[in-house]
Amino acid sequence: MRFVPKFLLSAMSPDHFPDSVRTGDAPEVAFLGRSNVGKSSLINKLLGSKEAKVSSTPGRTRAINFFALHDGTPQKFAARPSLIFADLPGYGYAKISKSISAEWPTFIEPYLNEREQLSLCICLVDSNIPPQESDTMLINALQQMQRPYLVVATKSDRLGGNQLTKSLTALKKAHSVDRILPVSSKTEAGVKTLWPEITNLIQD
Protein backbone atom coordinates (compact mmCIF):
# COMPACT_ATOMS: atom_id res chain seq x y z
CA MET A 1 0.00 0.00 0.00
CA ARG A 2 1.42 3.37 -1.02
CA PHE A 3 0.52 6.54 0.83
CA VAL A 4 2.03 9.99 0.84
CA PRO A 5 1.98 11.13 4.49
CA LYS A 6 1.58 14.77 5.47
CA PHE A 7 1.48 16.28 8.94
CA LEU A 8 -1.94 17.88 9.29
CA LEU A 9 -2.17 19.63 12.66
CA SER A 10 -1.87 19.36 16.45
CA ALA A 11 -4.99 19.67 18.58
CA MET A 12 -5.31 20.41 22.28
CA SER A 13 -9.06 20.99 22.32
CA PRO A 14 -12.07 19.70 20.37
CA ASP A 15 -12.22 23.03 18.58
CA HIS A 16 -8.86 22.22 17.00
CA PHE A 17 -9.84 18.81 15.57
CA PRO A 18 -9.55 18.78 11.76
CA ASP A 19 -12.82 19.41 9.95
CA SER A 20 -14.22 17.68 6.90
CA VAL A 21 -12.85 20.39 4.61
CA ARG A 22 -9.32 19.27 5.51
CA THR A 23 -9.94 15.54 5.85
CA GLY A 24 -12.81 14.81 3.47
CA ASP A 25 -14.24 12.78 6.37
CA ALA A 26 -11.54 10.14 5.81
CA PRO A 27 -11.57 7.35 8.43
CA GLU A 28 -9.25 7.96 11.36
CA VAL A 29 -6.99 5.51 13.19
CA ALA A 30 -5.96 6.50 16.71
CA PHE A 31 -2.73 5.26 18.30
CA LEU A 32 -2.88 5.04 22.09
CA GLY A 33 -0.63 3.73 24.84
CA ARG A 34 1.60 4.47 27.77
CA SER A 35 4.32 7.09 27.48
CA ASN A 36 7.42 5.71 25.75
CA VAL A 37 5.60 2.61 24.45
CA GLY A 38 6.65 3.51 20.91
CA LYS A 39 3.58 5.12 19.30
CA SER A 40 5.47 7.65 17.19
CA SER A 41 8.11 5.10 16.13
CA LEU A 42 5.43 2.68 14.95
CA ILE A 43 3.57 5.40 13.07
CA ASN A 44 6.79 6.36 11.28
CA LYS A 45 7.42 2.74 10.28
CA LEU A 46 3.88 2.41 8.96
CA LEU A 47 4.22 5.65 7.02
CA GLY A 48 7.75 4.97 5.83
CA SER A 49 8.72 8.47 6.97
CA LYS A 50 9.66 10.53 10.00
CA GLU A 51 6.51 12.64 10.15
CA ALA A 52 5.85 11.71 13.79
CA LYS A 53 8.37 13.22 16.19
CA VAL A 54 10.12 10.62 18.34
CA SER A 55 11.50 11.52 21.76
CA SER A 56 13.31 9.46 24.38
CA THR A 57 11.69 11.63 27.06
CA PRO A 58 8.29 10.23 28.10
CA GLY A 59 5.39 12.62 27.96
CA ARG A 60 6.63 14.90 25.19
CA THR A 61 3.50 14.38 23.10
CA ARG A 62 0.91 16.61 24.78
CA ALA A 63 -1.46 17.15 21.86
CA ILE A 64 -3.26 14.89 19.42
CA ASN A 65 -1.13 15.00 16.29
CA PHE A 66 -2.98 14.29 13.05
CA PHE A 67 -1.34 12.92 9.89
CA ALA A 68 -3.08 12.77 6.51
CA LEU A 69 -2.35 9.81 4.23
CA HIS A 70 -2.87 10.53 0.53
CA ASP A 71 -3.02 7.93 -2.24
CA GLY A 72 -0.27 8.28 -4.82
CA THR A 73 3.40 9.18 -4.97
CA PRO A 74 5.33 12.23 -3.70
CA GLN A 75 5.23 13.57 -7.26
CA LYS A 76 1.51 13.06 -7.72
CA PHE A 77 -1.00 12.32 -5.00
CA ALA A 78 -4.71 12.73 -4.33
CA ALA A 79 -5.80 16.10 -2.96
CA ARG A 80 -7.95 14.55 -0.26
CA PRO A 81 -6.54 11.98 2.16
CA SER A 82 -7.75 8.39 2.19
CA LEU A 83 -6.85 7.86 5.82
CA ILE A 84 -5.93 9.87 8.92
CA PHE A 85 -3.57 8.75 11.69
CA ALA A 86 -3.98 10.35 15.14
CA ASP A 87 -1.05 10.12 17.58
CA LEU A 88 -2.48 10.61 21.08
CA PRO A 89 -0.60 11.69 24.22
CA GLY A 90 0.80 8.89 26.33
CA TYR A 91 -0.27 8.08 29.86
CA GLY A 92 1.04 6.29 32.92
CA TYR A 93 4.47 7.87 33.33
CA ALA A 94 4.82 8.97 36.95
CA LYS A 95 6.40 12.39 36.39
CA ILE A 96 3.74 13.60 33.98
CA SER A 97 0.77 11.36 34.76
CA LYS A 98 -1.09 14.00 36.78
CA SER A 99 -0.87 16.69 34.13
CA ILE A 100 -1.73 14.26 31.34
CA SER A 101 -4.62 12.85 33.37
CA ALA A 102 -5.97 16.35 33.86
CA GLU A 103 -5.94 16.93 30.11
CA TRP A 104 -7.66 13.69 29.10
CA PRO A 105 -11.24 14.76 29.97
CA THR A 106 -10.86 18.09 28.15
CA PHE A 107 -10.04 16.84 24.66
CA ILE A 108 -8.82 13.23 24.55
CA GLU A 109 -11.94 11.61 25.98
CA PRO A 110 -14.21 13.70 23.72
CA TYR A 111 -12.12 12.60 20.74
CA LEU A 112 -12.40 8.92 21.64
CA ASN A 113 -16.04 9.08 22.68
CA GLU A 114 -17.53 11.49 20.14
CA ARG A 115 -15.37 11.65 17.02
CA GLU A 116 -17.51 10.29 14.18
CA GLN A 117 -14.56 9.72 11.85
CA LEU A 118 -12.71 7.54 14.39
CA SER A 119 -12.82 4.05 12.87
CA LEU A 120 -10.14 2.12 14.76
CA CYS A 121 -8.06 2.45 17.93
CA ILE A 122 -4.61 0.84 18.01
CA CYS A 123 -3.81 0.12 21.68
CA LEU A 124 -0.07 -0.26 22.14
CA VAL A 125 1.24 -2.29 25.08
CA ASP A 126 4.90 -2.92 25.94
CA SER A 127 5.81 -6.59 25.55
CA ASN A 128 8.88 -6.13 27.79
CA ILE A 129 7.09 -5.23 31.02
CA PRO A 130 4.32 -6.88 33.05
CA PRO A 131 0.72 -6.05 32.09
CA GLN A 132 -0.24 -2.56 33.25
CA GLU A 133 -3.55 -1.67 34.87
CA SER A 134 -3.69 1.61 32.93
CA ASP A 135 -3.70 -0.37 29.66
CA THR A 136 -6.53 -2.55 30.93
CA MET A 137 -8.49 0.57 31.89
CA LEU A 138 -8.06 1.99 28.39
CA ILE A 139 -9.19 -1.23 26.72
CA ASN A 140 -12.20 -1.45 29.03
CA ALA A 141 -13.09 2.18 28.25
CA LEU A 142 -12.95 1.54 24.50
CA GLN A 143 -15.18 -1.50 24.95
CA GLN A 144 -17.70 0.62 26.85
CA MET A 145 -17.55 3.25 24.09
CA GLN A 146 -18.06 0.43 21.56
CA ARG A 147 -14.99 1.55 19.65
CA PRO A 148 -13.26 -1.02 17.41
CA TYR A 149 -9.76 -1.64 18.69
CA LEU A 150 -6.68 -3.76 18.08
CA VAL A 151 -4.06 -4.50 20.75
CA VAL A 152 -0.47 -4.35 19.50
CA ALA A 153 2.55 -5.41 21.57
CA THR A 154 5.60 -3.24 20.85
CA LYS A 155 9.35 -3.89 21.19
CA SER A 156 8.92 -7.58 20.40
CA ASP A 157 12.49 -7.77 19.05
CA ARG A 158 13.85 -7.60 22.60
CA LEU A 159 12.37 -10.97 23.54
CA GLY A 160 13.24 -14.48 22.41
CA GLY A 161 10.61 -16.84 21.05
CA ASN A 162 9.58 -18.43 24.36
CA GLN A 163 9.83 -15.13 26.22
CA LEU A 164 7.61 -13.39 23.68
CA THR A 165 5.06 -16.21 23.81
CA LYS A 166 4.91 -15.98 27.60
CA SER A 167 4.60 -12.20 27.46
CA LEU A 168 1.76 -12.31 24.94
CA THR A 169 -0.05 -14.97 26.98
CA ALA A 170 0.20 -12.83 30.12
CA LEU A 171 -0.96 -9.72 28.28
CA LYS A 172 -3.96 -11.50 26.77
CA LYS A 173 -5.00 -12.83 30.16
CA ALA A 174 -4.56 -9.52 31.98
CA HIS A 175 -6.38 -7.46 29.35
CA SER A 176 -9.03 -10.12 28.59
CA VAL A 177 -8.37 -10.11 24.85
CA ASP A 178 -8.13 -13.06 22.48
CA ARG A 179 -5.45 -11.70 20.20
CA ILE A 180 -2.43 -9.39 20.39
CA LEU A 181 -0.24 -8.57 17.40
CA PRO A 182 3.50 -8.34 18.22
CA VAL A 183 5.48 -5.70 16.33
CA SER A 184 8.94 -4.16 16.34
CA SER A 185 9.70 -0.71 14.99
CA LYS A 186 13.39 -1.63 15.05
CA THR A 187 13.25 -4.77 12.91
CA GLU A 188 9.86 -3.96 11.30
CA ALA A 189 8.58 -7.40 12.34
CA GLY A 190 4.79 -7.37 12.29
CA VAL A 191 4.56 -3.96 10.61
CA LYS A 192 3.52 -5.36 7.22
CA THR A 193 0.98 -7.58 8.99
CA LEU A 194 -0.52 -4.57 10.75
CA TRP A 195 -1.35 -2.72 7.52
CA PRO A 196 -4.07 -5.12 6.32
CA GLU A 197 -5.39 -5.30 9.87
CA ILE A 198 -5.91 -1.53 9.73
CA THR A 199 -7.48 -1.44 6.28
CA ASN A 200 -9.67 -4.52 6.83
CA LEU A 201 -11.10 -3.26 10.10
CA ILE A 202 -11.81 0.15 8.57
CA GLN A 203 -13.54 -1.41 5.57
CA ASP A 204 -15.66 -3.57 7.87
Rank of each mutant, 00 (worst) to 15 (best):
V21T: 13
Q75D: 15
L46M: 12
S176K: 15
Q117Y: 02
Y91H: 08
A63W: 01
I84K: 02
I129W: 04
S185N: 07
E103Y: 09
A189E: 13
L150H: 13
I96L: 05
F67V: 15
V125A: 08
E188I: 08
T73S: 15
A102L: 13
A68L: 10
Y111M: 07
D71S: 14
Q143Y: 06
G48K: 07
A79G: 08
H175R: 03
N113T: 11
N65H: 12
S167T: 08
T73R: 13
Y111H: 07
Q75V: 03
L88C: 11
S119H: 12
M1S: 09
Y93T: 03
E109K: 14
L32S: 10
V4I: 08
S127M: 10
F7H: 06
L181I: 15
P148N: 11
R34D: 06
H70P: 09
I180A: 05
F7N: 01
K166D: 15
L8Y: 05
C121A: 15
K76W: 07
S119F: 07
P148C: 09
F66I: 06
T61S: 07
I180M: 09
S167I: 07
K192T: 13
R34T: 08
S167L: 08
L8C: 04
L32H: 04
E103K: 14
S184R: 07
I129F: 11
Q146C: 08
H70Y: 10
E197S: 08
A102K: 15
T199W: 03
S49I: 00
T57M: 04
I100P: 01
M145D: 02
F7E: 02
P110E: 10
V37M: 02
G38E: 01
P182W: 06
S97T: 13
R147L: 09
A78H: 13
D135Y: 04
G90L: 06
K53G: 00
I84S: 01
E188H: 13
N200Q: 14
R80Q: 12
C123V: 15
R179Q: 14
A170S: 15
R115C: 12
V183T: 14
E28L: 03
T136N: 12
V21R: 14
T61P: 02
L8P: 03
L47R: 03
K50E: 11
M1T: 08
G59S: 06
V21K: 14
V37L: 04
I198K: 03
P105V: 13
R179S: 14
F3A: 02
M12L: 02
V191C: 05
S99V: 14
T199Y: 04
C121E: 08
S119E: 13
L47T: 15
T187E: 11
T57L: 06
T57G: 00
A94W: 05
A102G: 15
Q144H: 12
N44F: 04
F3Y: 14
L171Y: 05
D19W: 10
R147N: 05
F17V: 04
P110H: 07
